[in-house]
Amino acid sequence: MPRRPTRALAVGGVVVAVLTVALLLGSGLGHRDSLAAAPLVRRPAPHFALPALDGRRDGAVRLADLRGHVVVVNFWASWCDECRTEQAALNRMWERFRDAGVVVVGVDFEDAVGDARAYVARSGASYPIVVDTASRTALAYGLRGVPETYVVDASGRIADRVVGPATSPRLERAVTRLLTGPGR
């Protein structure tokens, strides 16, 4: 009869292994969102002062100058197909909310300046477009790719983050909540 305890041990080992793998698999699947989740949400937005894409000195944007406004910071690139998908939503958002004090800022990421300028000319974007030299701002915001959009509230905190193409309802919901929230 010495086989029984060993067999029970082996079966127990298999059960533990199955449970462990299942748990890790489940946790890994559950973790995908948190991997993409920004730890910066509800924390102060990293400061940036970036030059305008068109080179105009008055087109430069300093986030600190926009304190008191809801700011939509959209990271994009001319080589990014999904950025084209969300362009109409951003344009619409800007046209509708700019007179409510909302500012949309496009941040060009890892791009050739000529390509980026040509893209902007075609896109119909009339909001300020700046260039993230050396990707410092992208790294500060924890960017994992483009497009990514951050909504910064009037107090300078990141209120929302959209990974991938932003849609009109999503952006409008985020901005409207900030415009109609307490203190407004």
Binding site: G30, D33, R170
Partner: peptide
């Protein structure tokens, strides 16, 4: 766990409700 992680994803197409008396930008809407 999988269902929980999927349920956690924000609904992208949900509309927003505006409280009475709220400030909305002119022309804002779908």
């Amino acid at each position: 766990l999988l269902a929980g992680s999927l349920a956690h994803r924000p609904a992208a197409a949900a509309g927003s409700e505006t409280s009475p008396g709220a400030v909305r930008p002119p022309g804002a809407g779908p």
